[in-house]
Amino acid sequence: MDTSYQLRELERRLAEDRSIHELGVHLQQRGGRVFVSGTVASEESRSLVLAVVREACPGHEVVDDLACDQGGLGQPPESSEAIR
């Protein structure tokens, strides 16, 4: 993994691959590490994305900076807003 073009290509794959479809993942290489940031839909998706990146970037430490989108999905709101 030596050019940012390859990382852009990998981002595209993460968005378009039928088993992944994560549109909000960003990859950056800093030194020998590849930083994976952005948001994914679930914890399962996080593991899948990281596995794909690790496989595509042999010899690089892959750093998980991902956030998971689904926080609070099972949580009713504590207050409401009055619309004026």
Binding site: D69, Q70, G71, G72, Q75, P77, E81
Partner: peptide
């Protein structure tokens, strides 16, 4: 959902059955 962080957001439209509060914060047209 990633913006509201909860299962759903609730918006109240119209007059409240509880009437107006003293500070007017809940007054709705």
């Amino acid at each position: 959902q990633p913006v509201i962080h909860t299962a759903y957001a609730v918006y109240e439209i119209g007059d409240s059955p509880h009437g107006e509060s003293a500070d007017g914060a809940r007054i709705r047209q």
